[in-house]
């Protein structure tokens, strides 16, 4: 009764990931409707990160054996290269490119088919304003605070017009105050844009705030 044809959903169908002989993840089925946040929890080594790597397309197939399918908006992207999947990714660290300015980082994310320079610039500026960072474009990312950098990383991911979002413990390095507000901002943006979100976390608060399905790995 999987309804992975729900328009705009991120769906996993029978995903199995093996390391050596052991199955880290065994026939996982999951449908995340647009705007929903599904949470994957489990101890270290339980396969959380491998699952994200599989969905994003970075799983090392020399080490892991994986089966199953990833569907975005009903289309199977399992065989697509990572850069063709249009699945956005946020890490524990912001990983802003250190050699580009803040706006340079954002422009890197704007799809190339928007060729008009002014239009690209306008999109980046609007994203900065959205993130409460208007006027920060020319800054060196290394001079921003942790919270500001996290927001730039989110806007960069969103500007690339993803169809789904993967979160790899993106709040764990922020202090308690920032964590709550940034988390709310990420979920809010995902809801506004109708993005299905798959989040990996250690923190039960994150799962509670997400309010969606929780998958526990052993």
């Amino acid at each position: 009764m999987t309804n992975d044809r729900t328009s705009g959903a991120l769906a996993l169908r029978g995903v199995t990931i093996r390391l050596g002989g052991a199955a880290l993840i065994d026939r996982l089925d999951l449908v995340i409707p647009p705007g929903d946040v599904a949470t994957v929890m489990g101890p270290s080594g339980s396969g959380k990160s491998s699952l994200l790597a599989f969905v994003a397309g970075f799983l090392d197939h020399h080490v892991f054996k994986a089966e199953g399918a990833v569907l975005v908006d009903g289309v199977d992207v399992t065989r697509e290269r990572p850069e063709r999947r249009r699945i956005g990714l946020l890490f524990q660290d912001d990983l802003l490119f250190p050699h580009l300015s803040v706006v340079g980082n954002l422009l890197f994310g704007v799809p190339a088919d928007i060729a008009n320079r002014a239009e690209r610039q306008a999109l980046a500026e609007a994203a900065l304003a959205d993130a409460g960072l208007a006027g920060f474009g020319a800054r060196d990312p290394a001079t921003l605070s942790g919270g500001q950098r996290a927001r730039v990383a989110l806007m960069r991911a969103l500007l690339s017009r993803p169809r789904a979002l993967l979160l790899d413990e993106p709040f764990s390095k922020l202090d308690a105050e920032l964590r709550g507000s940034f988390r709310a901002m990420v979920f809010e943006q995902a809801r506004l844009r109708g993005l299905p979100v798959l989040m990996v976390t250690h923190d039960p608060d994150d799962a509670e705030a997400a309010g969606g399905v929780v998958v526990r790995l052993a």
Binding site: G57, F58, R81, E83, R84, A157
Partner: peptide
């Protein structure tokens, strides 16, 4: 070099060649 730079760039839609020339080599 943190491999997540390249992964992040790929998830933003950058091709391997673009990642090489605009992310890895400058850094």
């Amino acid at each position: 070099l943190d491999p997540r730079y390249a992964r992040g760039a790929a998830s933003l839609g950058a091709s391997p060649a673009r990642i090489l020339f605009t992310v890895k080599l400058p850094i």
